[in-house]
Simulated scan of single mutants.
Amino acid sequence: MRTEHTESYYAATRHDRNDRPALKDNIDTDVCIIGGGYTGISSALHLAEAGFKVVVLEAARLGFGASGRNGGQLVNSYSRDIDVIERNYGKTTGHSFGAMAFEGADIIRERVKKYNIDCDLKPGGIFAALNAKQMHELTEQKKLWERYGHTELELLDSNAVQKEINTDVYEGALLDHKGGHMHPLNLLLGEVAAFEQLGGVVYEDSAALKIERTRRPKIHTAEGSVTADYLLVAGNAYMHGLVPELSAKTMPCGTQIITTEVLEESVASTLIPNGYCVEDCNYKLDYYRITGDNRLLFGGGVTYGGGDPNSIEHFLRRHLERTFPQLKGIKFDYAWGGDFLLTMSRLPQFGRLNDSI
């Protein structure tokens, strides 16, 4: 019995509908990666480019978790901004994380161009302020990011932001020209195709059930195993306690998204005329964009501990119609949720569990 994707807009419009087999053998490789999302697949592709023999184990379907369900926005920086990292961990660490924050979007654009990935990639992202306090914070954020070399930023006052977003709810905004948005599942599956062309191997429906932490780690699935020189653990919110010391420092959180029916071109182009993606500056933020086929994709909210509200449609309709009252009563074609991983430090969590993991 194959695991199916959640019933999302992304799953319904993905280009690659191939099934990868489940692992039913005991195999040996240079690198084994647990998790077929962005972290696992991007790492796999870079390793394959460098000549390594790589095997990816995905518990469900490629992009089944956050990588195939998210808002599709290229957002620079972290949940804790670079000044907080620098203050708590020192200037060297701050500068390293600062470089990575703005390198990520460039890597994605390079992957899309190099491998000709069809994922509706569009430039530009807006951080929208709902009040003067948030606008002040965006002004400071612009100064901070420019200090770390990110200069493709533009502050928008209330008049300018209304030209970019057809709503009167915002006080102003910060336009990040290095931001952007895309179809996240097609991005991932495009990277998978590139990885497989380089000889990489992916197994779906092959959950890692046990890790033997020996010199050459051995990863057991229900019907097979992989022994590798190195293991990369990249399961994020869908690890299910496989690595207890990571689970103790993290918490799954749910977020939800709806997608409207296809809008007339005249309607879609008036909502966000230049096609940027948008997120507001609230702690529990709303985020939205126009898809490649002229739907409004709108997400928001956080459910700590994971899971979804009783009605995603009811929950998000209030947010969408408050932002765009002209869409009152609009039909929703898709509604879905999913979990992302929140680290207790709100910073990226990476490192070694031993010399080979």
Score class of each variant (00 low, 15 high):
Glu223Val: 01
Glu86Lys: 15
Ser345Cys: 08
Asn310Lys: 14
Leu297Trp: 01
Ser96Met: 13
Gly71Val: 02
Tyr115Ile: 00
Tyr288Lys: 00
Ser67Tyr: 01
Lys91His: 11
Thr167Val: 01
Thr260Ile: 00
Glu137Gly: 07
Arg352Lys: 15
Val202His: 05
Gly72Ser: 07
Thr6Asn: 13
Val278Asn: 00
Glu103His: 13
Val278His: 00
Asn116Trp: 00
Gly63Asp: 06
Gln349Glu: 10
Ile257Thr: 13
Gln134Ala: 13
Ile219His: 11
Leu198Ile: 03
Leu45Arg: 10
Pro309Asp: 11
Glu137Gln: 13
Ala12Leu: 03
Gly199Ala: 07
Asn76Ala: 13
Leu121Glu: 07
Gly299Phe: 04
Lys331Ala: 14
Leu155Gln: 13
Ile219Pro: 11
Gly40His: 08
Gly299Cys: 08
Lys331Phe: 05
Val302Cys: 10
Asn236Phe: 05
Arg346Thr: 14
Asn310Phe: 03
Ile117Val: 03
Ala237Cys: 02
Phe195Ile: 08
Thr151Arg: 08
Glu49Asn: 11
Leu45Cys: 01
Glu279Gly: 09
His15Asp: 12
Leu121Tyr: 10
Leu353Gly: 08
Val243Pro: 08
Glu58Pro: 11
Ile272Cys: 02
Val169Glu: 11
Asp28Thr: 15
Leu153Phe: 02
Lys210Phe: 10
Thr270Gly: 03
Ile33His: 05
Ala237Thr: 03
Arg14Tyr: 03
Glu245His: 10
Gly124Gln: 03
Gly307Ser: 10
Leu188Lys: 12
Lys24Gln: 14
Phe195Lys: 11
Lys210Cys: 09
Ile126His: 07
Asp16Phe: 01
Leu23Cys: 08
Ser96Ile: 14
Gly40Ala: 06
Tyr287Cys: 00
Lys249Pro: 05
Gly301Arg: 01
Pro273Trp: 05
Glu49Leu: 06
Val31Leu: 10
Lys142Gly: 12
Leu246Ala: 02
Thr221Arg: 06
Ser79Ala: 15
Ser158Thr: 14
Phe332Trp: 09
Leu155Thr: 07
His177Tyr: 12
Lys114Ala: 14
His46Met: 12
Arg69Ala: 11
Gly124Asp: 03
Gly299Ile: 04
Ile165Tyr: 04
Leu189Val: 02
Pro123Val: 05
Phe332Ile: 13
Asp25Gln: 14
Glu321Ser: 04
Gly190Ser: 07
